[in-house]
Every structure is written in C-alpha cells, then in structure tokens.
Design a binder for these strands. Structure first.
Length: 501
RNA sequence: GGCGCCGUAGCCAAGCGGUAAGGCAGAGGCCUGCAAAGCCUUUAUUCCCCGGUUCGAAUCCGGGCGGCGCCUCCA
C-alpha cells in the first residue's frame, strides 16, 4: 500500500510517487504577511503539516518549502497607512504567524522564502518569458503574461480553451492588455510603492513583481524545476496556480508540479468566514483566550481536508475533551507497571515467584499479547486511513478505537506483560508523530517545578487527611487545586495529578 | 451564467455495492469515602425526498428540495 492523493489537475485520486524517492519536494503557498493569520489559514497550514508529517513518518526525506508573500497590494496598503517600509511593516507579522504555527505544533519548513528576497531572480525570469514570446511589456512599464501564447492555459481549473484566444487589445483604465485574463508579471511602480520601499529597478523601469511570479521563481529556485507536491488553499487554483503553471512551464518546458493538493475552505459557526461578515477568527486570538493549541489542532484535523469543516466554539470544547481522553490514556499507559520482562525473541521468562503463568499472553495463543495485537491493528488502520487521501477523520477514529480497546483490556486483565505495554506505548507515540496532539498538549500544559512540588506536598497533605477520614479537608484541597487548573485522580496506585485547560 | 462540493444520531464526522466507524454531549450500571479516570449497556431498523439499476444501495443512475465554494491579488 502507498499514499493515494487527490490531484486537482487530473481531478482524480492518484498514487503518489515522488520523482526522486526517497526525496520529496514539497512546496506550499503560505500567507500574505500583512496581519495575523486567521483560522482558515491554519487549516491549510495544518493540512500541509499533516502531509509533511505523514511523509516523514512513511520514511520519505521531505524537503518542505513555504513562501511568505511580503510584497503585494495588501502589504503595501498597510505599510503605507503605518508609514513604514514594507519589510519593516511585515516582519513582526511574519514572526507572529510562525510563532503561532510553532505553538500549534506545525513542523518548520526547511525554508520560508520572502518575495522581496527574490526580485532579481524574478526579473530575469520575466526576461526569459519575453524571449519565448510569452510576455509583453506595455507602455506604462508593466509586463504581462500572454495566456493566448500558452495553449495549456486553463487546464488546472478546467476552463474553456476558447477564452484564452487572443482577442483585440483590451483597453483598461490604465493598462493595455491583449486578453483580459492576461496577468501582470511586473507592475510599474506607483508613488505609493516607492514610498514604502516596494519598487525595484528593472529593464522596464521601476516596478514590483506580480504576485503569481514569486511562487514559480522561489519554488524552482529552492526545489528544482519539478515539484512533487504543490499545496494551497482551494481559492488558489485559479488564477494563482494556473498562472504559476504558465510561468513555470513556459520557461522550463518541464512539468512544474506532479501533484496538486488543494485544501477546502472552512466555515465558522456554519457561515463562510469573511471580513464583511466580521467573523474572522485568528489563532492568535484563540491562543490569547487560553484555548488549548492541541484542541485547535484536533478540530482542524477532524474532517478530511477536501471536505468542508465547520469550526465552532462548541467543537473546540469537544476537541479539548477528546485531547484530554488521549492524555489520560497516555498517562495510564505510562504508570501501568508491566509484569516481567522479555527476552530477545519476545518470549516471557518463567515467573520468578513460581506462580501461575501470565494469562495475558497465554490466552492469546501467541507470543504477542493482546495489547501488541491491538497496537498493530491500530497502526495499520491508522496508516490505511491516511493513505486514503489523508483521511484524518478516519485516522483519528482508528486511534480512538485503540484507546477504547486497550483501556478495556487494562481493566479486564489482572496483569499485563511489559512487552505488551511497550507495544501499546510505541503505537501511541508513533501515531502521535503524525497527529502531533500529545506533543503539543504537553508543550502547552507543562508545569514549572515549583508548582509541581507544591502540588505534590498538597497531595501528601490530602493523603494524610484522607487517612484520618477528614474528607472535608481532603476535598477542600482537591477543590482548590481544580481552581488552579489541576485535577486529582485517586486510584489503587495512589493519586495522580494533571493540569487541564 | 461557467466549474465544483455537500446534505449520515442532539452537535461534529467516517463510510466509495454487502447490511451504519470515531469524538463530544445525554441516560443507566460497575468501580470510588465522594469524585475523577476507565469499562459495560443505551442513544440512526436507518443515512434530505421521489423514482430507477441490483440478489443486495447511505453508497450507482435520473429527477427534485436544501446548503455551500471558486470564477474578484481571501488559505
């Protein structure tokens, strides 16, 4: 079995095969860094991360690059309002977006190229397009891509080839284009561009690159002429990615991208998220409200990436509970003491005390105990779900089936073999390498040493109170700790504590 | 208008021709000093509606109804 991924260009689920295994050249369209990124951006980033993590988990050597757009109309407008240079204006947002991504457990890309760092390369790319007759300059000093000269134009979006036919020159207010759909490769500088430092010298005069060009030039510069996977939000299919194909293949003559992956937009509380509705949510806000990053992660992975996902406050609470269930399960596995060790062949040693042989493995009739079998089944189901076009919802289900079955086994069994426990722990850790739920939650819930020792001493005090049947005191200690975000759980093995959101 | 997606329990969400995963929430029970955690039972005889194909359909086809996305430098 291997990964099957939907490909926008062929509109079909295809086997994923990198051109040069085990290397995978992975490129994603990142955000425009003019503000904090919103929850929709992060859905995309989390899908990028899911694919990134899954590929690594599967043994690929992933070279992941995500661009950051720091020069375009939005950054220029905002920088202008703030009276700052465009790079000076965008840098803090770049920082905050990447910081929030780290908090959400998004694995870093190898490189985050900025458009402003590639202007000379973009200029020479335009010159090559001109040489090939795919671009033309206009009198005002702008340069356009001529879609009529690129027969494959429109294939990604499935557009009628008719409309790429070169028509009469279309006189715009200020431009002169051969076809209304021709797009800017180079835009003549306006005073506002100059004011914020968003203008560069070029053979066509002062100006700035068109937005679409940066991805072609930067992805090829960083990863080579053919990318294995190019990802983005569904809104980027047209015109952005259509234009990237035209620019890239127009120059190289090579297939630009082997696999196009597009993430469906989410909705918020059942409505499209948009600035006009005033319902945009940024991850920055959610984190500042104290919502757990693992819960955000869980909700965003709760639907397969090509399905609409409804991001809600109620859903976030449900996700927080689901993450807690995982944490509790992990803690239970960690504190369960296994019976006996194993030799290299997985055989149980004779019981040291001469007692009855362990039933856990004996009843299973094999060397692998019930937990080890459940672990194998879970990882297999998990893998199968992800191989099926990154079905994260089904992968999560596989994980939770595992949690339920193992908990049941642990409740029922008198004792569990050490090797069996290890197998269960390893399976959980392995699945979390892809999901990143537990690791993010731990990062989030860490308690400093002082507080931890205070908790321990309160637990000791409570134990004494319970010993004296002073339940009022014992409960008061427990209630106070709950106020401080610490939940106590008594069991035969003693009292354990956990921090909750 | 063009292209495309979706309608499954109270909410979220899998399922891709073989007899309804999972999470959250709810009810009852076991365990517990009480809790928490965990487990067990329970919560859709049924998948928007109507036809059709099939031994068999939530799954395929046709027609409705309803919701949504992109086509505008929004991931």
């Amino acid at each position: 079995m291997s990964l099957k991924l939907y490909d926008t260009l062929t509109r079909s689920v295809r086997d994923f095969e990198p051109a040069d295994p085990p290397r995978v050249r992975l490129y994603a369209c990142g955000p425009t860094v003019y503000d904090h990124a919103h929850i929709g951006n992060y859905r995309s980033f989390l899908v990028y991360d899911l694919l990134h993590r899954y590929l690594k988990w599967s043994g690929y050597d992933v070279d992941f690059v995500m661009n950051l757009t720091d020069v375009d109309d939005k950054t220029i407008d905002r920088a202008s309002e703030a009276g700052k240079d465009v790079r000076e204006y965008t840098a803090p947002f770049t920082e905050s977006i990447l910081a929030d991504a780290r908090t959400l457990g998004i694995l870093p890309a190898r490189s985050y190229p900025l458009a402003t760092g590639y202007v000379p390369q973009m200029v020479s790319w335009i010159e090559r397009l001109e040489e090939k007759g795919l671009a033309y300059a206009t009198e005002d000093g702008s340069v356009y891509f001529s879609i009529g000269a690129f027969p494959a134009y429109g294939r990604l979006k499935g557009l009628d080839p008719e409309f790429t036919r070169p028509g009469a020159r279309v006189a715009d207010d200020e431009y002169e284009k051969e076809n209304v759909r021709d797009f800017a490769l180079w835009k003549a500088a306006k005073p506002a561009d100059e004011a914020v430092g968003a203008a560069w010298d070029s053979p066509w005069g002062r100006g700035r690159p068109g937005w679409h060009l940066e991805c072609s030039v930067m992805s090829i510069a960083e990863l080579g002429e053919t990318l294995d996977i190019h990802m983005g939000g569904e809104d980027l299919v047209f015109p952005h990615h259509e234009n990237e194909i035209a620019q890239s293949e127009g120059v190289t003559g090579q297939t630009f991208v082997r696999h196009w992956v597009h993430v469906k937009h989410l909705v918020v509380e059942g409505e499209k998220m948009s600035k006009s509705l005033g319902n945009t949510i940024t991850v920055h806000e959610l984190l500042e409200e104290g919502l757990g990053p693992a819960a955000i992660r869980h909700q965003l992975l709760g639907a397969q990436y090509r399905r609409e996902l409804n991001f809600t406050r109620d859903g976030l609470a449900a996700s927080a509970a689901a993450v807690q269930r995982l944490l509790d399960f992990e803690a239970r596995l960690a504190e369960t003491v296994g019976a006996g060790g194993v030799d290299g062949a997985g055989n149980r040693p004779p019981a040291a005390d001469g007692g009855a042989p362990a039933t856990a493995t004996a009843e299973s009739g094999g060397l692998a105990g019930p937990l080890a079998r459940l672990a194998d089944e879970a990882v297999e189901a998990f893998r199968t779900a992800l191989e099926d076009d990154l079905n994260s919802a089904e992968a999560l289900a596989a994980l939770f089936v595992f949690v339920n079955r193992v908990n049941g086994e642990l409740d029922a069994a008198a004792e569990v073999a050490q090797c069996d426990l290890e197998a269960a722990r390893a399976a959980l850790a392995s699945m979390d390498e892809v999901l990143g739920l537990l690791s993010v939650a731990h990062e989030d819930l860490d308690v400093d040493d002082d507080f931890a020792s205070e908790i321990e001493s309160l637990i000791a005090e409570r134990k004494a109170a319970r010993g004296d049947k002073d339940f009022a005191r014992a409960d008061a200690i427990r209630d106070d700790l709950v106020e401080r975000g610490i939940v106590l759980e008594d069991s035969a093995a003693g009292t354990r504590w956990k921090r909750v959101r």
